[in-house]
């Protein structure tokens, strides 16, 4: 009973937070962040544990696998963009992924963070469901990985456009690759505010990054 009501509550909160975001469009208000905060507040208010919440919540998590499979659709739909900019896109996402994972790993080690945190930071540049799967495979904490992904997405979407402006990155290919490779889905939503072409490139970059991260992450940890 608790499971079902919390599941329904999650959906209600999500719909409300989506509306809020559509109204103000401020990156800090992305639905995943606001919904998470509201739900955690609800749980602590009623003294409910995360395990109790997951009785219903696990049904949503079950859909993450097929959702990752579904990412093949936008990649297929944007296949002409992919073909047109194949090499630049492969280069920017391949090296972007290496820089993202490498710098995360390096900084985390430099600051002597606990191993579980280090392994959860590494996949932060790719879309949540993939990052969680990667974290699981390399002994990180999937939940924590999802939180870092969220932080990467929010701050990328917030500061990315300012950064591009300052550094004269003005082309669709530059903006799209940057947002997609660094800030995945949240970045792609931001790219859509700039233009359709930017968004198409961003969504291709996001998917390519996810593929590269899946392939490279296990190798990186062998080093």
């Amino acid at each position: 009973m608790i499971g079902v009501s919390l599941l329904i509550w999650t959906i209600v909160v999500y719909i409300a937070m989506r509306k809020l975001y559509a109204r103000f469009y401020f990156p800090l208000l992305v639905p995943v962040a606001t919904s998470t905060v509201v739900i955690i507040m609800t749980l602590s208010l009623f003294h409910l544990s995360y395990d109790q919440y997951m009785i219903g919540g696990k049904w949503l998590v079950h859909l993450l696998g097929p959702a990752v499979v579904a990412l093949a659709l936008p990649l297929y739909q944007h296949r002409h963009t992919l073909k047109q900019f194949l090499w630049p896109l492969l280069c920017s996402t391949f090296f972007g992924t290496i820089i993202g994972m490498g710098s995360g790993l390096l900084f985390a080690r430099l600051f002597h963070l606990p191993e579980k945190i280090v392994r959860s930071i590494i996949p932060k540049s790719v879309t949540s469901p993939v990052a969680m799967d990667i974290a699981k495979l390399i002994d990180g904490i999937p939940t924590l990985a999802a939180v870092y992904v969220m932080i990467a997405g929010i701050f990328g979407a917030m500061f990315g456009p300012i950064l591009f402006q300052r550094l004269h990155i003005t082309t669709a290919l530059g903006i799209g690759s940057g947002l997609g490779a660094a800030s995945h889905g949240i970045g792609t939503a931001k790219a859509l505010e700039i233009g359709r072409k930017e968004a198409a490139i961003s969504s291709v970059a996001m998917t390519l990054s996810a593929i590269f991260a899946s392939l490279l992450c296990p190798l990186l940890l062998l080093l």
Partner: peptide
């Protein structure tokens, strides 16, 4: 210490954003 992880994530994200952005810009 864990609080640093947030700073690390933000800095690393900006590095990826810049690098991927520059390559894209250069290519186009």
């Amino acid at each position: 210490r864990g609080i640093w992880s947030i700073v690390i994530v933000i800095v690393s994200t900006m590095m990826v954003m810049l690098f991927a952005g520059f390559i894209g810009q250069w290519a186009q």
